[in-house]
Design a protein around this nucleic acid. Structure first.
Lengths: 229, 229, 229, 229
DNA sequence: AATGAATGAGTTTTCATTCAT
DNA sequence: TATGAATGAAAACTCATTCAT
């Protein structure tokens, strides 16, 4: 408003203008994650972004469009981070798996992007198409990455044989809960630092995956199968 | 509804009156879990319960009161199920842990009560006092149960030493995700049956916990610690 | 319910039954006066009368019918009290006027019936027909009584000549305000007992009415007339 | 609406914004006075003000807040009018008293502000705090003004001795009834113009207050005292 | 006669969306 | 572009009225 350098006016404006959409989605993400979609008022989003409510409608057709933009922007970020690592990484699957989990935490789980996971979890039934899209673009790809590592580990004798699809979910769950817990009740990571939690998860997991002769678990498994019909 | 004794006609009204609250909370739970608190209209809750909107207000002062009742009723159910198992169970910690996890799934995770977990996860920041209450009454108690088993296992040499608090969270997370996934996107248990998922979780976990000499994991742990600061 | 003397049952019931309507109107009058018609809930009327809400509908077709019954019952009481005094009273108009005002206070103004005045004042525009009826039956009759006394006093030389219709209103106003004030803010009778207030009113009034030669007031009156057009 | 300066088009919005609250309270005052608080629908207030229902909530948090604003705005107007007259007026108390009463009618009683008196009278038990505030700010101050004049008149020998507090109420009552009657049944001023009514009140009152020797009233007073205990 | 559970029309209140400036 | 006043559809909530018992 009180521009001291009139020569710079145009670029400044340009920059603001270009930055607007992501300023808005950033504010929206925070509030959507904290309160949920329906409970978030556009008034509050605008206020947090420091603009008027009307301005939101210059960039997004509707509240739903804003929400979708938030999710899509988050997905782009996630996928961009992931693609970088697809990597020609070579070496033991054990190391690779550990690497992937810690990477995920550093690139995604510990950032605001983790909020997108919470949104998908909480709002998926209200936005089925968006959820499906997320499923295809993010979840399926992420699972594929893990599947590759697990297969390699099993084939190479590092990991014992197991139900790979199920294992993928079991591996992801603690990461996801850790990320989501940042925005709500600490259901799982109460009184524990993220580092301790992750370390314990990785250690337990790699120990559990490791191929060793002890046949004791098998009995238990059968018993469990019976209990679950 | 299924009147077997026509002679008992008189208490019909009375029985209805007594049954109403839980009919209403049942309908409300379903919708709150599916759509979230804010997106659930009381009209729909009433319709699902087969009553008029006004009837809801005969039993619950407000939408918020209904929500709290839903959570509290769920908590009672969960705690009642848990208390039953506190048990004088004796035997290997390994068996006990497996037992507990499968029990949780059968008593809670696979029932409508699992929805309460999703609600707490999604709505905790909108109902902080309720979340705190849930934390104290349910989470803390549940963690205490697991803590007891892990300690016994470690002291008895069945399990290796580890960060017990962190391990509790890691153990719970896959169960919770499995339960919550029933009401939204299958973030973790995609294309896998609950039984396979649980079996894999328990097997991996017990393998990972088992006390065996291989010291390889330690190195990895240190590397991870460094990455996480 | 638990009648110990079954022989007396019938008459007891009968008495209750006959008394019901006035028990209900009594409770209704209290609440209507305190809160106004619209703000009074039938639930509360029923509760104050110690019956269920449904019972009200056994005696009154609707809330409006109940209100009208309250007013009409009040009017009957008022008129009955008035008729008694129409009297073949003889004597100085001064004494008669004082008598009438004090009587009104004792028979009406100091009783629950005074509430009817407040109701008419506050609700007349919501029940124009009822107000008109009250006007005809109560106000007009009351004014006629006063008119008679004032005329007699003027004709007999006790009172000076004045605008009789206006004087009637001026005489009534303090009585009415005193009565109404019992149910709301003491706009006029703050910190004064009803007896002091009435005494002062009557004294001032009779002094003011008395025929005395002093011509000073005339000037003032003319000035006032000019100010008011 | 009545734009005399078309060049000033820009501030139209601004002017509207500033004017809105009082447009709304004006409409609200009319309806509250006519129907009472509870029976007045915000729909109707909005319609009378020529805006939509939602607009009301742009300026007032709730119906109750609107009501309080109506009363407070009315009080400000009343007090502002009163302060103007506090006056260094000198002269006979008789003239001053007449002046005050006629002023009140012209400044308040004959204006829409008179409606506030009706609201306070009718709604005081539903808004006790507001009533108390009104009592302190308006009634107490108004009584103080009258008290001053009466004292001066008595001390100066113009008025006879009497119960000043009671007299204040007796003096106010006809004014108040006249004002309130404009909005409901003419309980007191039926078939009489305001001017005639006021003139009669003032004349009667000043006559009644005047100091004259006749001791006749005393007897009557004693009789009245006995009747009232 | 009496009850009180149930109803649904009516009211208050909220908030996404529009649009004149 | 940006604003924010205004809108009105939709949701929460109330309560007079009904009716099965």
């Amino acid at each position: 408003m009180t521009e001291t350098a009139p020569a710079e006016k145009a670029p400044f404006r340009r920059r603001r203008k270009d930055a607007r959409p992501s300023e808005l989605t950033t504010a929206a993400l925070e509030l959507f994650v904290e309160r949920g979609y329906a409970a978030t008022r556009l008034d509050d989003v605008a206020a947090r972004a420091g603009v008027s409510k009307g301005t939101l409608y210059l960039y997004f057709r509707s509240k739903e469009a804003l929400f979708k933009a938030v999710i899509e922007e988050g997905m782009l970020t996630v996928l961009a981070a992931a693609e970088q690592r697809l990597a020609d990484y070579r070496g033991p699957a054990t190391d690779l798996l550990r690497e992937m989990l810690l990477d995920w935490w550093q690139q995604i789980g510990s950032t605001p992007m983790a909020g997108v996971s919470k949104l998908i979890l909480c709002e998926s039934s209200n936005f089925p198409q968006l959820a499906e899209y997320y499923q295809e673009q993010v979840i399926t790809r992420g699972r594929a990455l893990l599947r590759g590592v697990l297969r390699r580990g099993i084939e190479g004798g590092e990991f014992r044989a197991l139900d790979i699809e199920a294992a993928i979910g079991v591996i992801i769950a603690p990461l996801l809960m850790l990320a989501i817990s940042r925005f709500s009740l600490r259901l799982c990571s109460q009184e524990v630092t993220a580092a301790d939690y992750l370390t314990t998860h990785v250690d337990l997991l790699l120990d559990g995956l490791r191929h060793h002769p002890d046949p004791a678990g098998a009995t238990g498994t059968k018993a469990a199968d019976e209990r679950l019909r």
